[in-house]
Amino acid sequence: MSITTLSSRRQNLLLIAGILLIATSLRVTFTGAAPLLDSIRADYGLTTAQTGLLTTLPLLAFGLVSPLAAGFARRFGMERSLTGALILICAGIAVRSLPSPTLLYVGTAIIGCGIALGNVLLPGLIKRDFSGHVAKMVGAYSLTMGGAAALGSALVVPLALSGLGWQGALLALMAFPLLGFLVWLPQWRNHTPAAVTTSRSLHDKGIWRSALAWQVTLFLGINSLVYYVIIGWLPAILISHGYSEAQAGSLHGLLQLATAAPGLLIPLVLHKLKDQKGIAIGVALMCAVSAVGYWLMPQQAVLWTLIFGFGSGATMILGLTFIGLRAGSAHQAAALSGMAQSVGYLLAACGPPVMGKIHDASGDWHIPLIAVAVISLIMAVFGGLAGRDKEIHGKS
């Protein structure tokens, strides 16, 4: 083996390690705060609505910043933009952990901006550097992201009780983006701008006029909506059916682990398929079935949690894979990723409060769960359309 080949392999492994470590920061720094919300509310005397804003604020940041990410990548390059994303996440964690209610919200918003950049740019980077292994890479970073989220959720409460307090526990989550920053830093020197096509359809504005782009967007976006409704309200749904808070919390953690599991399986299946229509419809239907299951047979909540987690996790992996498969270039992938995640997270930001209001008006969770099931059926329709073996060209 030549020295050049060995060096190239090491650089490739370092790039993959950097991608996976960035992925660990894209969920844990957000979802890791959820188990501490009661402590935060009690410490600062926040209302339920003010506490809920800590969940909604990052989703709004995702939706508003995502469309800007492709422009940053064209101007500064993907490597440097992702470095900036990690710096923002670290800075946001530091600000959020300071003893001030105002800085708690400011830091949360900064974290949301950094995560939004990472969410959008990673699919574009994978399209550019691993175009022949999109599904495998998306599966690997989805698995890593889900595993880190579950680990963070499991660790923050023990850390807070160990004497660090909730601020110290949240500050400890900086270990994820800080490690990612250190491993990713060599990519700053290896800055490789992707070619920018001159076709208008491949730029940010043109992508919004593509029917296929909208099909991918709504498949991924509706999944974000139903995922954040269930992840936000599952403990309350379970408690209303007689589960204890500890049982509900355990199932909430199980849900996050279940969303990571498809990262092992979906990439192994995709390369054997002529297109992805059938599997996209199937995993969306899993979300619909589980929502009905929570309503009709809540005593089987473990089963429905596993089914929903696998279906939603697989949908996310497929949606992110579609970004790479349907786009014709790295920058088009970044623009499509920005479009899909902007729409998806704005929908997600609306979902939990709307379903909460429906619950308050009706007095139970039946109507919200039926709504999740119906929305999941609509997601299955868009999955069938987005799963066709096509690529975005002009106004496809």
Score class of each variant (00 low, 15 high):
Pro368Leu: 02
Gln187Thr: 06
Phe322Asn: 01
Ile281Tyr: 02
Ser142His: 01
Gly112Cys: 05
Leu347Val: 11
Asp364Trp: 08
Pro298Leu: 09
Val229His: 02
Trp365Lys: 04
Gly324Arg: 00
Gln276Ile: 03
Ile111His: 01
Gly309Ile: 13
Leu46Cys: 13
Met174Thr: 13
Leu385Ser: 02
Asp360Lys: 11
Gly180Trp: 00
Leu125Phe: 14
Arg189Glu: 11
Gly92Ser: 10
Ile115His: 00
Gly163Ser: 14
Ser396Val: 14
Leu220Asn: 00
Pro262Phe: 06
Cys287His: 02
Leu270Tyr: 01
Ile367Ser: 09
Leu171Cys: 07
Pro353Phe: 05
Val216Tyr: 00
Leu212Ala: 09
Pro67Lys: 04
Ala211Asn: 08
Val216Asn: 02
Cys287Trp: 01
Thr108Cys: 06
Pro353Lys: 03
Gly249Gln: 07
Leu268Pro: 04
Gln276Cys: 04
Ala211Arg: 12
Cys287Thr: 12
Pro298Ala: 11
Ile115Asn: 00
Ala49Phe: 11
Ser8Asn: 15
Ser131Arg: 04
Gly253Tyr: 04
Ser81Ala: 13
Thr305Leu: 08
Gln247Ser: 15
Ala371Asp: 12
Met137Ile: 15
Leu185Ser: 08
Ile222Cys: 04
Ala61Pro: 02
Phe30Arg: 01
Gly32Gln: 03
Leu103Ser: 08
Gly282Lys: 04
Phe219Val: 04
Leu385Gly: 02
Gly242Tyr: 10
Thr144His: 01
His359Cys: 10
Ala175Thr: 10
Phe30Lys: 00
Pro352Ala: 14
Pro186Gly: 07
Ala284Pro: 07
Leu303Asn: 06
Pro267Leu: 06
Leu255His: 08
Phe322Leu: 06
Phe30Ala: 05
His366Arg: 15
Gln167Glu: 10
